[in-house]
Design a binder for these strands. Structure first.
Length: 768
RNA sequence: GGGCGCGUAGCUCAGUGGGAGAGCACUUCGUUGACAUCGAAGGGGUCGCUGGUUCAAUCCCAGCCGCGCCCACCA
């Protein structure tokens, strides 16, 4: 044996042999009548590459899967990738631009989608190769994709996922749980699509609060308090023929249709029911009393732009204010051809000059005009939080459009109950609170996206706009014929669905649903879902909602998609910052693997996977655990040099030397400690038990104290010690294998030819 | 505003109602017999602060200080 393990050279070869031997196939090493144990991988984006978070997530899953596999369970670790609608579309659009090719609009929808499929087929294998490098023992023969079977999918991309998505959409539509509605949504003006609330990030920004004077209509005026005594009572007033409103977004003023004041705000009480006039536009703005207006904020009078503000939209509905959209999908001013904008008023040339300007240019221009014309009352500096699209990083625009919504409130009920009743348990349990809090306050889920890469909404419209939601165009045509009494031309809805709509079906869809497959019957529900907390809402909650709604037992009771949810920490840079390319503090797991070996990196991540919120990764630890694997290697080398070979029929209970009896007991204790830790998802406890035993017990004491016996004159003691050492080492290779699969597998082959690879041998049964 | 987490050695982090720990870094010594990717020995911490419960608190409780995250708020 060499003095060290050459991880870089050995690991890929070991992985190839595992795969070739069928070690990772569903049910490999399962005992007769074994219970099933299934984990579905959180599907990485198909164009993505392995980052350190994936490395942690998949290492933990692999530890559990290899452990259960060795224990003789019927194990399935289901692999696959997510089509990642908006992210992938973005990647391809950037690639097109970088290559100097025509953009997606010039290409047209069909050609663009073909191009994305091509990208998927070219780069989709990248992450699979990287997961192999990590040692992840997924059953690759079952690799799934969230867009499989979609129309236009090239050869080799067949599958059931598109059917699953259509089935869910159509059934929910017919049950009234999916509906179309015109309401304000978060609009991403870069991708020109609606996004869900979850895809919006609040970003604190320095900004300004502008105060504008809106003249009162019909020559009206009122007395505004300007001086106050110690009790806050007004002592002086001034006569004003205007109302001051404050705004952080001047550009929206062209869409104003009212001004709200609080019903008990005596300053403005006399104005309620009268009108103000919108500068530049001349539109009459109803002054309404509404609880939403906060007398303490701004000037207490708040301009109402129902088409461009979520709160204003609600007030507008209550108070009967019109909603006037003044922006294009790219958030430029839309005025000239906008009949709503012109309705009942005559905008000035200054207003019309804003036509086509970007929202921020329009803002600057408006403030300029306000100042020049004397209706700018003042400016305050302020920081406020501004919602941004999580992909485009652009400020999202509340935008009034027709979109498809899922009645999440109804679906949430069973998903909440399942966790309340313990059908699914979170580890650590504290995450259940987060889960409940979100689901109990859930808003309708906007699932339509104005993108091209994704599952197209299965709805066709008749000439009068009547919607027919069916699995196929033919079925929609038949439904239309029944509705109209004759054939009518139908037009399909252009929208695609939110990526999370399909990934929410992952546990069912990967097992063949809506088909009634043997795998679905066998492996659903899964044993545990291993995930980071950042996608509890995006993904876990959606899988719970869909799983509970569509999977029922004979009694009609919801069957949850997984029994346990293990929520692990997020990996951060050593300084605690989020790893990001722009900051340049990204640690590439593949670099760590190249330098220290996959085993060392895996062991590091596992040893730090305590149930906290985040892990600050120190690379020095990786080196430390690489040394640990070398230590193990050399203990085996010691065994080889001393002719310690496994003895057929060796009975650990029968050894007589005190030293050997002692290590047998320690081995049992170690096995129990590892099992107990993994049962409780205390990965770091398992890792430290193994580390402490192998280094501090087996090497420091047992190996040292075995030397006199191995070189002594007592042949019986020598032989027993040789056999015991070989046995004790084998037990440690097995116990370490889920954590450090490569070096343990390599050592497993060393002393003797073995009938089976370590990955599919049995877990030690020795007790303490 | 609502919720959650963290604060232990120089750094990155475990941990427990009774003895304060690991890796890395540091100091000294040790290289023909498993291992220098090593071994032996060692220095270094009032376990954020204050109060309470307890025979006993780093751990449990309350408050405070500091840091961070999630959700809600574009007047």
């Amino acid at each position: 044996m060499d003095k060290t393990f050459d991880a870089a050279a050995a690991e890929p070869d070991l992985y190839a042999r595992w795969e070739a031997s069928g070690c990772f196939a569903a049910g490999a090493n399962a005992r007769d009548g074994a219970e099933t144990y299934c984990i579905v991988i959180p599907p990485p984006n198909v164009t993505g590459s392995l980052h350190i978070g994936h490395a942690l997530n998949n290492t933990l899953q692999d530890v559990l899967i290899r452990w259960k596999r060795m224990q003789g369970f019927d194990v399935l670790w289901q692999p696959g990738q997510d089509h990642a609608g908006i992210a992938t579309q973005m990647v391809v659009e950037r690639a097109l631009a970088a290559e100097g090719n025509a953009g997606r609009r010039e290409m047209g929808r069909d050609a663009f989608v073909r191009r994305v499929w091509q990208q998927k087929q070219e780069s989709g294998g990248t992450i699979i190769g990287q997961l192999r490098r990590l040692g992840a023992s997924l059953d690759w023969s079952r690799n799934a994709f969230t867009m499989s079977g979609a129309p236009g999918a090239p050869e080799g991309e067949e599958g059931n996922f598109h059917d699953a998505v259509l089935r869910v959409f159509v059934e929910l539509y017919k049950a009234g749980l999916i509906y179309r509605d015109k309401r304000l949504v978060n609009w991403d003006p870069v991708f020109e699509t609606a996004i869900s609330d979850l895809e919006v990030e609040q970003v604190e920004e320095k900004g300004k609060l502008w105060r504008f004077r809106y003249p009162l209509a019909d020559g009206a005026s009122y007395e505004h308090p300007v001086e106050f005594d110690e009790d806050g009572e007004a002592t002086a007033w001034e006569t004003r023929d205007y109302l001051v409103v404050a705004t952080t977004r001047p550009e929206t003023m062209l869409g104003d249709t009212g001004v709200a004041v609080h019903p008990e705000d005596h300053r403005y009480a006399g104005l309620v029911g009268t009108d103000a006039i919108l500068p530049l536009v001349g539109r009459r703005l109803k002054i309404v009393a509404d609880d939403y207006a906060d007398p303490e904020k701004g000037t207490g009078a708040v301009k109402m732009t129902p088409a461009h503000d979520f709160n204003d939209f609600e007030v507008g509905k209550r108070q009967g204010l019109r909603s006037i959209n003044i922006m294009t999908p790219r958030a430029a001013m839309f005025l000239q051809e906008n009949a709503d904008f012109h309705f009942g008023c005559e905008p000035t040339p200054e207003a019309m000059a804003l036509e086509g300007l970007d929202r921020y240019e329009a803002r600057a221009k408006l403030v300029e005009v306000a100042e020049a014309q004397g209706w700018l009352d003042g400016i305050d500096e302020e920081t406020h939080v501004v919602p941004h699209g999580d992909r485009s990083k652009a400020a999202v625009e509340p935008y009034l459009t027709d979109q498809w919504f899922v009645d999440a409130k109804t679906l949430a009920k069973e998903a909440i109950a399942a966790v309340r009743e313990g059908e699914t348990v979170f580890h650590p349990k504290s995450w259940e609170k987060t889960y409940f809090q979100w689901l109990e306050n859930i808003e309708p889920w906007c699932v339509s996206r104005q993108l091209w890469w994704g599952h197209q909404v299965p709805v066709w419209y008749g000439p009068d706009g009547h919607a027919f939601c069916e699995m196929t165009e033919a079925a929609a045509a038949a439904a239309a014929r029944a509705h109209y009494g004759e054939d009518r031309p139908l037009k399909r809805d252009e929208d695609v669905l939110d990526t999370w709509f399909s990934s929410g079906l992952w546990p069912m869809g990967t097992l063949g649903w809506p088909g009634e497959t043997p795998e679905l019957a066998r492996y659903y529900p899964g044993g545990v879902l291993v995930t980071g907390f950042d996608i509890i809402f995006f993904w876990v909650a959606r899988m719970m909602m869909f799983g509970c709604h569509f999977m029922k037992d004979e009694a009609g009771k919801p069957v949850v998609p997984f029994k346990d949810v293990y929520v692990h920490a997020l990996v951060r840079a050593e300084d605690g910052k989020k790893m990001s390319k722009s900051v340049g503090n990204v640690i590439d797991p593949l670099d760590l693997i190249d330098e220290y070996g996959a085993d060392a990196m895996r062991f590091t991540l596992v040893s730090m996977a305590a149930m906290g919120r985040d892990i600050k990764l120190a690379t020095s630890r990786v080196a430390g655990y690489r040394n640990f694997s070398t230590k193990l290697w050399n203990a085996a080398r010691f065994g080889e040099l001393n002719e310690c070979k496994p003895v057929e029929g060796f009975d650990p209970a029968a050894v007589s030397q005190p030293l050997n009896r002692w290590i047998v007991g320690e081995t049992g204790r170690l096995r129990a400690a590892v099992d107990a830790a993994l049962e409780a998802y205390r990965f770091n406890d398992a890792a430290s038990a193994l580390y402490g035993d192998v280094w501090g017990v087996f090497c420091d004491w047992y190996v040292e104290l075995s030397k006199p016996l191995l070189s002594g004159d007592d042949a019986a003691a020598r032989d027993e010690t040789r056999a015991t050492l070989a046995w004790a080492l084998d037990a440690r290779l097995k116990l370490l294998h889920p954590f450090m699969p490569f070096v343990t597998e390599a050592l497993w082959e060393q002393p003797a030819a073995r009938p089976a690879m370590l990955a599919v041998t049995d877990w030690p049964e020795i007790g303490p």
